[in-house]
Amino acid sequence: MSIRLLAAAFAVATALFAFNVAEVSAHGDVTPQPVDTTGLDPLGEEWRKHNPYRENAKAIEIGTSGYNQNCARCHGLEAISGGLAPDLRLLDKGDAGDEWFMERIRHGAKKPDGTTMMPAFDGLISQEAMWAIRTYLESKYTPQ
């Protein structure tokens, strides 16, 4: 085997390794970004079971920003999934989807082996921000 062929094989192997490491690391320890909820009615300490901001234009605006800062990296721009994470445009609208959404965003999700699929956001972003993101997602709803 020639030196050039060995060097080319080594370069390809190194590039593939670097790509895989970057891909895994990019999805790793991500710091949640704060969401400015100025303009939304405060919700207090008790968690709501249903979206208090449904179809609220200000909530959609705030939720768009909150989604782009905290969710788009995994769930895709405009909530259009690339296949790695669920397509959030398909979540049930209204009260039917509220419970699932809040359970998932607050507590996250893990695989049976304990690997984090989605981080928990409870205590990191406010209830107001979570409901604003939910309102944004409902505005993107696409029936199956």
Rank of each mutant, 00 (worst) to 15 (best):
residue 1 M to R: 09
residue 2 S to R: 03
residue 3 I to Y: 13
residue 4 R to C: 03
residue 6 L to M: 11
residue 7 A to S: 13
residue 8 A to R: 07
residue 8 A to H: 03
residue 9 A to V: 04
residue 10 F to W: 11
residue 11 A to N: 02
residue 12 V to E: 04
residue 13 A to R: 01
residue 15 A to V: 12
residue 16 L to H: 02
residue 16 L to P: 03
residue 19 F to D: 10
residue 19 F to A: 15
residue 20 N to P: 00
residue 21 V to E: 06
residue 22 A to P: 00
residue 23 E to N: 15
residue 24 V to P: 00
residue 24 V to E: 15
residue 25 S to D: 13
residue 31 T to K: 14
residue 31 T to A: 14
residue 36 D to S: 09
residue 36 D to C: 08
residue 36 D to Q: 05
residue 37 T to H: 04
residue 37 T to C: 11
residue 37 T to Q: 02
residue 38 T to F: 01
residue 38 T to I: 02
residue 39 G to Q: 07
residue 46 E to H: 11
residue 48 R to W: 06
residue 48 R to D: 08
residue 49 K to S: 15
residue 51 N to K: 11
residue 55 E to K: 08
residue 56 N to W: 02
residue 56 N to S: 09
residue 58 K to G: 06
residue 58 K to R: 15
residue 59 A to T: 03
residue 60 I to W: 03
residue 61 E to D: 14
residue 62 I to P: 05
residue 62 I to M: 12
residue 64 T to I: 00
residue 64 T to A: 11
residue 64 T to R: 10
residue 64 T to V: 01
residue 65 S to D: 14
residue 66 G to H: 08
residue 66 G to P: 10
residue 67 Y to Q: 08
residue 67 Y to R: 05
residue 68 N to A: 13
residue 68 N to H: 11
residue 70 N to V: 03
residue 70 N to A: 09
residue 70 N to T: 05
residue 71 C to L: 09
residue 71 C to R: 09
residue 71 C to T: 11
residue 72 A to R: 09
residue 72 A to K: 05
residue 76 G to M: 02
residue 77 L to C: 00
residue 77 L to Q: 14
residue 79 A to I: 03
residue 79 A to W: 01
residue 80 I to D: 09
residue 80 I to G: 04
residue 80 I to C: 09
residue 81 S to F: 01
residue 82 G to W: 00
residue 83 G to R: 04
residue 85 A to K: 00
residue 87 D to V: 02
residue 91 L to K: 05
residue 92 D to Q: 12
residue 92 D to K: 09
residue 93 K to R: 12
residue 94 G to R: 05
residue 95 D to W: 00
residue 97 G to Q: 08
residue 98 D to T: 04
residue 101 F to A: 13
residue 101 F to P: 08
residue 102 M to Y: 06
residue 102 M to E: 08
residue 104 R to M: 15
residue 104 R to H: 15
residue 105 I to Y: 03
residue 107 H to A: 06
residue 110 K to G: 07
residue 112 P to F: 12
residue 113 D to A: 11
residue 115 T to M: 15
residue 116 T to W: 06
residue 117 M to H: 10
residue 118 M to S: 13
residue 118 M to G: 12
residue 118 M to D: 14
residue 120 A to W: 04
residue 121 F to Q: 11
residue 122 D to F: 02
residue 122 D to T: 02
residue 123 G to M: 08
residue 123 G to W: 04
residue 124 L to S: 14
residue 126 S to D: 07
residue 129 A to H: 14
residue 129 A to C: 14
residue 131 W to K: 06
residue 131 W to G: 06
residue 133 I to N: 11
residue 134 R to Y: 07
residue 134 R to K: 15
residue 135 T to D: 10
residue 136 Y to Q: 06
residue 137 L to E: 06
residue 138 E to I: 00
residue 139 S to W: 00
residue 140 K to N: 07
residue 140 K to L: 09
residue 142 T to A: 14
residue 143 P to W: 01
residue 144 Q to Y: 07
residue 144 Q to N: 13
residue 144 Q to F: 05
